[in-house]
C-alpha cells in the first residue's frame, strides 16, 4: 500500500515527460533565418497545398511519405538540387518553380508555384537539418 502514492507520482511524471517529448525543443520554424526571402511557416502551407508529399518524404508534413522522388529529410545539408546544381537558395527557388529549366528531363512537374510561394517553400526546406 505504501507504494501507491509513488506509483501515482511516477505516472504523473511519466505523463508530463511524454507530453514534453512532443515538443520540438525550440527547433521552431523561425529558428533558421535563411537567405531565401521566404517564410517557413507559409512554406509549410504551400507544401501541403501543392501536395509535394505525394512524391517526397518531407519531415514535418503530415502524410508526406512519397517514394516517387527523393526524400527531402535533412535537405538543408544536401549538396545538390535535382542532382544538377549547387544547393543554394536561388537554385532551389528556381527548381521549385520550374524544374525543367534546370533538368529538362526530370519527372518533377512544374506545379504553377509562384515566386513568393517558392521562396516560402525553400525557407521551410532549409529548416530540415
Amino acid at each position: 500500500m505504501t507504494g501507491r502514492p509513488h506509483m501515482v507520482l511516477l505516472f504523473i511524471a511519466g505523463g508530463i515527460l511524454s507530453l514534453l517529448a512532443g515538443c520540438t525543443g525550440g527547433r521552431s520554424l523561425e529558428a533558421y533565418p535563411t537567405a531565401t526571402g521566404g517564410d517557413a511557416r507559409r512554406g509549410k502551407t504551400a507544401i501541403e497545398q501543392y501536395r509535394c508529399g505525394a512524391c517526397h518524404e518531407i519531415p514535418g508534413i503530415p502524410g508526406a511519405r512519397g517514394l516517387v522522388g527523393p526524400s527531402l529529410a535533412q535537405f538543408a545539408d544536401r549538396s545538390f538540387v535535382g542532382g544538377e546544381v549547387p544547393n543554394i537558395p536561388e537554385n532551389l527557388v528556381k527548381w521549385i518553380m520550374s524544374p525543367q529549366s534546370i533538368e529538362p528531363a526530370t519527372a518533377m512537374p512544374a506545379l504553377g508555384v509562384n515566386e513568393q510561394q517558392a521562396r516560402d517553400t525553400a525557407a521551410y526546406l532549409y529548416t530540415l537539418r
Binding site: R51, C52, A54, C55, G66, L67, V68, A107, P109
Partner: peptide
C-alpha cells in the same frame, strides 16, 4: 483518397502501391 491534382496524379501513376 487524394485530391485530383498534378502532383498526386503523377505520384499515383508511378507509385500507387506506396500510396
Amino acid at each position: 483518397m487524394f485530391p485530383n491534382d498534378d502532383a498526386d496524379l503523377e505520384a499515383w501513376v508511378t507509385h500507387a502501391q506506396s500510396l
